[in-house]
Amino acid sequence: MNRSLAILLGALALGAAIFVGSYFVSQRATEICCANPADDLSWLRTEFHLDDAEMAHIRELHEGYLPKCAEMCAKIAAKKGELEAALGSGTNINPEAQVKLNELAALRAQCQAQMLQHFATVSQAMPPEQGRRYLAEMQKLTLGTHEQLEQSMSGDTGHEHHH
């Protein structure tokens, strides 16, 4: 009885070790093999089944968009610095800080509009069905976080936010 139990437990441990070992080795190998961290656009090619011509066009659009995006990011970062300076060490939001806050929000909205416009342009460079899927996916990924945050603050979760 004891010998049989020991054999069974040993076999279970060995089986688990074999399964876990082969799982992690193949997972890591696949991850290393499939990942292409050098190319930011590798996801587009595999996910939306794009050919070389479509990829070349999208790469062109992407490279045209990046400087605009960087410029907008620099403006936002500068405005954030101005806002922090305006806020200072006080405990109240002074009128100057309020102005900076509005300007920061406007810059963010402008950046977001530019980003969504880029997604729309890229989606048009794809086959129609893939383009629709890309646009929906990108909107979900970029706007979804805000929606989740807003939903969590609204009555959906049973927590009312009164102003």
């Binding site: 696949t30 930011d40 590798s42 996801w43 996910e47 992407h62 968009y65 990011c73 936002i76 990108m138």
Partner: peptide, 19 residues
């Protein structure tokens, strides 16, 4: 790998402050 590639693309096109 797919998720990592997606995040790479997203990091390139969408500034973190907008997400």
């Amino acid at each position: 790998a797919r998720h990592e590639a997606q995040m790479n693309y997203l990091a390139a096109v969408a500034p973190h402050s907008l997400r």
